[in-house]
Nucleic acid binder design. Structure first.
Lengths: 162, 162
DNA sequence: TTGTGTGCAAACGGTTTGCATCTCC
DNA sequence: GGAGATGCAAACCGTTTGCACACAA
């Protein structure tokens, strides 16, 4: 059987990019910051929209001890650097995801029953943003488009399960 | 000079609609509920996106004494009845506005500096929502599209004021 | 008259902050 | 060595809730 060692390398170039982005602002690359960002950049992470609590939970499971203050402070730093962006998916808590150009410009379709989140891209959304801001003389910073509905699985549950 | 008495009538038919919507559900029309909904329906209200705190403030200024618990409970009732809907405009607090069909389907352009909110309509946004939900078998409940930018006035302030 | 609505105050949950200690540059 | 980062615990702030009293139907 072939060694899967290559799957386990730590992609040092990613850490270098992160380090120089931080150092440019007089900030430092710490273990905690690395681990938090890694949750968003590892190719095996299928859930890329993370709340502070989910980050805490995942790092604890990996054996990393980290405080909520550090998580919140790191998330702010990453948003300021443009590495992450905040998204509104559910009520009462904030979610974070990789920001463009580190990830594609996309929007979200959320099932209000099970919380499942789909991403999608559509140029029309960007065009409407550009048109509206241009017409009113605004500069465009950001836009959030979130569609709420019920997914097929949850539909079936209600229809068959009573 | 002509009396402006007609401007001051209380549009009793609006209260009747509200009362029957409530009574259908076994709920009651109280003074507090009337006053809260009136903030959204009076034609002179130029700021139609209100938070619980703004509602509290405006009613106090009108000499109405009301508690936050009543405001929050009323907002929930009105959302359940479909009269109001929640919108995400700023961080950390919820805003409410008249819901369709009591108001038009629209979206928001927000200045992140001064908080000014513009409403706009665009069929493309609804079409994208319908297309995405249809493609994935979701039912469409709701969508929120919010564009963030800087308005011309705030631009000028930064450019000229230093 | 009775069940719904209100106000008060306390609880709640996610987030922020002050401070002592630690660590990256 | 010194500025910046961390962890802890307490504070914070918008929101929710339990309970006694008030009021619409």
């Amino acid at each position: 059987m072939v060694s899967n060692h290559s799957l386990e390398v730590h992609f040092p170039e990613k850490q270098d990019v992160l380090k120089s982005l931080l150092n440019q602002e007089g900030l430092r690359l710490t273990n905690q910051r690395q681990e938090i960002v890694a949750l968003f950049t590892t190719s095996f992470a299928d859930e890329k929209h993370l709340s502070a609590e989910e980050i805490h939970h995942q790092l604890l499971r990996q054996g990393q001890k980290i405080s909520f203050s550090t998580i919140y402070r790191t998330l702010h730093v990453m948003v300021d650097l443009g590495i992450l962006r905040e998204v509104e998916l559910a009520e009462g808590k904030k979610y974070y995801e990789l920001n463009a150009p580190f990830a594609s410009q996309h929007h979200h379709l959320v099932c209000v029953q099970c919380g499942e989140v789909h991403e999608f891209e559509d140029d029309r959304v960007i065009k409407v943003s550009q048109q509206e801001t241009h017409e009113r003389g605004f500069s465009l910073l950001n836009c959030q488009f979130t569609v709420y509905g019920v997914c097929p699985q949850c539909h079936n549950m209600f229809n068959s399960g009573g």
